[in-house]
Each structure stands twice: as C-alpha cells, then as structure tokens.
Simulated assay, not measured.
Amino acid sequence: MIEVSLPWTIGPVPLGLTIAAAYGVFIAFVRREGFSFVFVISALGLVSGVAAFAVHLWRPSVDHMTILLTGQVVCTGVVFLLCWLSWVARKPEGKPQKLVSDVAPIKGLLASLAFPLVINVLFYLWPITSNYCAKLAYGNAYSGAKCRAQENFWGLHDLPLEIYFGVLFGVFGLVMFIVIVFRLCLNFFSPERDEAAPTAED
C-alpha cells in the first residue's frame, strides 16, 4: 500500500514544481517555439525533480557530496541536450533566435560560479539529515514542530531534498557559466568584421 500521509520524502511543493516544469518542456516541444529563458528554467526544474526521485528510489553507496556533484554534472549535460533538441525542433519561420545572449563577462562568470559554489559548500558543511527536526525538537519544541510543518510542504530533511535544491541551483550556475565561456570564446576566436571598403569613384 502506498504511504500517503505527510510528510513525504519529496514534498508537494517540489513535486508540483516538477510537474509544472515537465508541462513547460512538453509544451515548448509541441509548439516548436525553440528554447527561451522560460524553457531553460523548465528544464532545470524537470531535471532537478527527476534527480531527486532517482536518488529517492536508488541511493548509491557513496557520500552525499559525490552524489550531489555527479548529479550536477549529469543534469547540466541533460539541460544542454534538451536545449539543443528544442533548437533543432523549432519552427523555421519567425525571427531568428540568438543561441547566446550578450552578458557582462566578469560579473556573469562570478555570479554563475557563485550558485554551485555556495550551494555545495552549504551542503558540505550542513548536510541534510533525516533526524534534523528531532534535533531541533530536543532543544526547542516549537522549532521542531515548525520544522515538521515545513516538511509537509517541502519533504523530509533527507538526501533527495538536498539533491533537488543542489541540482536546481548548481546546474543553473553551471549552465550560465558554460554559456558565458562559450560566448567569450566566440568573441575571441571569431574573425573581426572588416570595415566596408570604400567604393571607387568614377
């Protein structure tokens, strides 16, 4: 019998966001609109939810940081694959889309690296454990009750929830970092446009 009493391992909020993200990706492919910022966010939400459920169903016998870093790398590749497929499946008519947008290089690189760096350091220093709320209840019953109430919405303080947020924010930063580096490489290696040669006068 399926256990439906709260709190779930992956709560209603991450579950609903994953379903909404899957719908966004599906609609983008059906309408063949190509990829956009909304599509990238939907792809991030989808891979985060899938990664969390995968860890919930099958937990590798390695430490949580190895799982988190592996999930971020793999899901980054999946996001780029989905973006490439949406680009291939787009309708040919309409305005041409830019593969990468103009960004401020230094600020963009620092900001994009901050996402995976901060989230990984936080989870390394304070890993999510299943007895987290019990520890709070031991020192402060109100904090423990509040923690359990939050678990009804987000899910248990356990590895799947850590993977969900770690992949969501970490992959976002990695994707932005790779896109910015790709943009910089295009600008560096692409030949500069020559100025138009003056026309000869008669």
Rank of each mutant, 00 (worst) to 15 (best):
M1A: 10
I2G: 04
V4D: 05
L6T: 05
W8A: 05
G11P: 13
V13I: 15
L15T: 12
L15M: 13
G16A: 14
T18M: 07
A21I: 00
A22Q: 04
V25I: 07
F26A: 08
I27G: 04
A28Q: 12
A28Y: 02
V30Q: 13
R31K: 15
R31D: 02
R31S: 06
E33A: 08
E33G: 14
E33I: 15
F35L: 01
F35P: 13
F37D: 15
V38W: 08
I41D: 06
A43L: 09
L44V: 06
G45I: 05
V50M: 02
A52R: 03
A52Y: 00
A54N: 09
H56F: 04
S61I: 09
V62Y: 11
H64C: 05
T66R: 14
T66W: 12
L68M: 10
T76E: 05
T76F: 02
G77L: 08
V78I: 15
C83R: 15
S86A: 15
W87C: 10
A89S: 09
A89F: 11
R90I: 00
R90V: 00
E93W: 14
G94A: 05
P96S: 13
V103C: 00
V103I: 07
A104F: 12
A104E: 15
K107G: 09
S112V: 10
A114I: 03
F115M: 07
I119V: 14
N120M: 11
N120D: 13
V121S: 11
V121G: 01
L122Y: 09
L122N: 10
F123N: 04
S130R: 08
S130K: 07
Y138L: 14
Y138Q: 14
S143T: 10
G144V: 02
K146A: 15
A149E: 10
E151V: 11
N152L: 10
G155R: 03
L156D: 04
L156A: 13
L159T: 06
L159R: 06
L159S: 04
P160W: 01
P160E: 02
I163S: 07
F165V: 15
F169G: 03
V171C: 01
V171K: 03
M176F: 11
I178N: 03
I178A: 04
I178D: 02
V179K: 12
V179H: 09
V179C: 00
F182V: 05
C185L: 15
N187Q: 12
F188M: 12
F188Y: 12
F189S: 04
E192L: 14
E192Y: 08
R193E: 14
R193H: 06
P198W: 07
A200K: 10
E201Q: 13
D202N: 10
